[in-house]
Design a protein around this nucleic acid. Structure first.
Lengths: 161, 161
DNA sequence: TATTGTTATACTCTATAACTATA
DNA sequence: TATAGTTATAGAGTATAACAATA
């Protein structure tokens, strides 16, 4: 009965001499490796965007605004799960760099219509190229594995709640 | 030429009326969905461990110590990529709750030999059950998809750097 | 009364420098 | 001189409450 587990095939060996201690089966858990993968991808992305002075969040905000100009801050925040107070700072910085402008929102003087400036468009175009190279590195890491299938698996997990 | 991309099949539609703004193709990126999946899994894990007063990191530390009793703090930190100063606080708390003890390390009075107390063993056993249920929820989200294959894909991405 | 953006603030996680006691 | 643990601290990232202007 000691082997009756639902699915996991765990590493049971605790080799005290191994490089780094045994992980107690953690390394066979989807959640644990998921975290490792996410950290690795994020590190690569951060470096890819650094030359443009953009963090991943900044980049995603620019992408969303480009996809739907005239968006309100709230809509951007909802799309990316960024709390409204935190988005204020992000937009402040992007606006301060002349990449985004807070335009007048037609028919609602409480909110702004966000749009990229020409400089914003230009920088985003360059950042997109770097991001594509980053995405290619992720895809390359998958080797012969089906990228669409991995995407589907991750989507299912993301919707798990 | 506008469609010549390495691999991604992007959503090109920017529907301003959709629930949440268009993501500018972000939702077709492995890295982005990877983050969503990681957040979802982490939230589920946090809730699964909450009844035991353990955060995911605490749980992983207990697992590593159980797998290899006598481990030094540094070894635990290396195994889990936790900075030494940060691990001090974690062990302090676990020791304060009587779950872990800092024993004498044979032949080196600078370091401690970490071990679980009987209470630690008991709590970890319970937490492991909750963790297994959590892991089952993750697996269930994958439906008919091959769990080992997903694990392999994530491992490859994690080693991408 | 509800909503948008804002301010202030706090909490967690993570990272670094410097100290101590041992080796 | 180097290492294990510690202390203090700083920086992200994220979260909530409350306010002003507007709806």
């Amino acid at each position: 009965m000691s082997k009756s587990r639902t699915s996991a095939a765990r590493a049971e060996v605790a080799d005290i001499d191994s490089p780094g201690a045994a992980l107690g089966g953690l390394d066979a858990q989807v959640g644990f490796v998921l975290r490792l993968a996410q950290v690795a991808v994020f590190k690569d992305l951060i470096e890819a965007l650094r030359p443009f002075g953009l963090r991943p969040t900044d980049f995603s905000v620019l992408l969303v605004i480009e996809a739907t100009p005239g968006l309100k801050q709230q809509a951007v925040g909802e799309a990316l799960s960024i709390q409204r107070p935190n988005l204020v700072t992000i937009i402040d910085q992007l606006e301060g760099r002349g990449l985004v402008k807070r335009g007048a929102a037609p028919g609602d003087r409480r909110s702004y219509a966000l749009a990229l400036t020409p400089d914003g468009e230009k920088l985003l175009a360059q950042a997109k190229t770097a991001h594509m190279e980053h995405a290619d590195r992720v895809t390359a890491a998958l080797g012969d594995m089906d990228r669409q299938m991995v995407l589907e698996a991750l989507s299912r997990i993301a919707r798990m709640a």
